[in-house]
Write a protein that binds this DNA or RNA. Structure first.
Length: 202
DNA sequence: TGCTCGATATTCT
DNA sequence: GAATATCGAGCAA
């Protein structure tokens, strides 16, 4: 993966990220994940995007140059991670939804809090789980994924060679029918589809 | 197996 | 005040 590739239209870039390897290195050790599921968010044209209503302190990274990490905190409890794509000033991003842990499995299991009873496929199955397994939080917001000394790196690699499956994005209120979710067909680490359900108050 | 519910940052109304 | 790009514990059937 090169930065020039990430500068393209988000719907072209999103499937390219399938099968690529993301590696984090911290004092605890190294964890690497092969991406199996992503979603595209097309900045100002997409009512489901955090950037749809303009720049805020939280989403500022999406407005910068491509190849930087956008991390946000949601539901009072969870982190999710995106790769900023498109040229600077275009706030498009690809949400990383799921992956397969291929390096540092023991550390990932420890971070997920259950070293024995969960199978490996659940370690990074879902965007919040992916962040936990990789040790991602707001500290990593804005890091350059293509810099050699970065704590979070998108590695150069072949990526997924086949035809990705597509479908509606998960859990969105706005534009739930746009098929901007991409995943590797038949991969067991792809997260289950959950439609948006409005929260009920008492 | 399939539901309801809580955790509470950030943004929007 | 209310909704949200979520997850998993706890409970009913």
């Amino acid at each position: 993966m090169r930065r020039s590739q990430l500068a393209g239209p988000v719907l072209d870039v999103a499937p390219l990220l399938l099968g690529t390897v993301l590696r984090t290195t911290t004092a605890e050790g190294t964890v690497a994940v092969r991406m199996t599921e992503v979603e595209a968010y097309d900045g100002p044209n997409d009512p489901g995007s955090h950037a749809y209503r303009g720049q805020t302190p939280r989403n500022a990274v999406m407005f910068g140059p491509p190849g930087h990490l956008y991390v946000y905190f949601t539901y009072g409890m969870h982190f999710c991670m995106n790769v900023g794509v498109g040229p600077a000033g275009t706030p498009s991003a690809v949400l990383l939804r799921a992956g397969e842990v291929i390096e540092g499995v023991d550390l990932a299991r420890t971070r997920r809090g259950n070293p024995t009873s969960k199978s490996n496929r659940d370690l990074a199955r879902g965007p919040a789980r992916l962040c936990v397994a990789l040790g991602i939080d707001r500290e990593q917001d804005g890091v350059d994924l293509l810099a050699k000394d970065s704590p979070v790196r998108l590695l150069d690699g072949p990526g997924f060679d086949g035809t990705p499956s597509t479908g509606p994005r998960v859990g969105l209120r706005e534009a739930p029918d746009w098929p901007w979710r991409f995943w590797i067909p038949d991969d067991p680490t792809v997260s289950p589809y959950r439609p948006h359900v409005p929260k009920r108050r008492t």
